[in-house]
């Protein structure tokens, strides 16, 4: 079970605060409509919805990969509209992302893939080596550290993607369909990994189309339907 959000006033502090968000693409389709939500520090959240409900778009807005058509995105109580590119990069460094398609770089070894966030953060080489090796061992990938991603199974690639998202100890961890490529047992194990990270203080947001899977965890859940939240508040189990 994920940790409950730390008890503090929502107005005082939020990791993510979306206010009246809408997102349209040039083709005219409205992906998200009048969406507002708040993720509190230390919270563990699911966002559920069918394919095309807008989950991935929502995550892209939170990790600043896209800008909303209207509304405000605040990360760590910083209004992101009009931020300089350097400031946006600074906010992104506080977010770990597990992509649906993993986005592992095929010609980099597992170690080098996982080390990328630390290199971006300018960590010393010795720290990178030690930290990456320890994390890969923790995730059961000690034997694959020099392998290329193409030599790994789908589940192993998934764990490498998770290691990369965790390695820089982000304040917010976002995972897009992290269980989409693995069986139920492995999926549960992965979520346990996220819960352990969450207990260390990282806010976790997992997007999944598998509502049954999300309902197995006593964590707040946002449900998206046709770009709208079913409830403005998280659906607490």
């Amino acid at each position: 079970m994920g940790a409950s959000p730390k008890r503090r006033s929502v107005s005082e502090m939020a990791v993510v605060r979306l206010e009246n968000i809408a997102k349209n693409y040039a083709a005219g389709a409205e992906i998200l409509k009048n969406l507002s939500l708040v993720l509190e520090p230390g919270g563990f959240y699911f966002v559920t919805g069918a394919s095309g409900a807008g989950k991935t778009t929502l995550l892209k807005l939170i990790c600043l990969a896209e800008a909303p058509s209207s509304g405000a995105v605040r990360l760590f109580e910083t209004e992101t509209a009009g931020l300089s590119r350097a400031a946006r990069a600074g906010l992104r460094r506080r977010i770990g992302i597990v992509f649906q398609d993993f986005r592992l770089i095929e010609d980099l070894s597992v170690t080098e893939n996982v080390a990328l966030p630390l290199r971006v953060a300018g960590a010393p080489e010795t720290e990178i080596r030690e930290h990456v090796a320890a994390l890969l061992q923790w995730l059961g990938l000690a034997e694959q550290i020099e392998s290329l991603p193409t030599a790994l199974s789908s589940g192993e690639q998934q764990r490498v993607a998770i290691a990369r998202a965790l390695v820089a100890r982000p304040d917010l961890l976002i995972a897009d369909e992290p269980t989409g490529h693995v069986d139920q047992q492995t999926a549960s194990l992965l979520v346990r990994v996220f819960e352990r990270v969450n207990r260390l203080g990282t806010t976790v947001l997992i997007a999944t189309r598998d509502i049954g899977f999300a309902e197995r965890f006593a964590s707040p859940r946002f449900h998206l339907e046709q770009g709208m939240l079913r409830s403005a508040e998280a659906v607490a189990q």
Binding site: A89, G90, R92, I97, R103, I105, P117, V120, A121
Partner: peptide, 16 residues
């Protein structure tokens, strides 16, 4: 390009 896009999402500064 795939790596550049990834690095941007990981928070790499343009200068880096």
């Amino acid at each position: 390009r795939p790596l550049v896009e990834l690095l941007q999402l990981l928070g790499a500064a343009d200068a880096d």
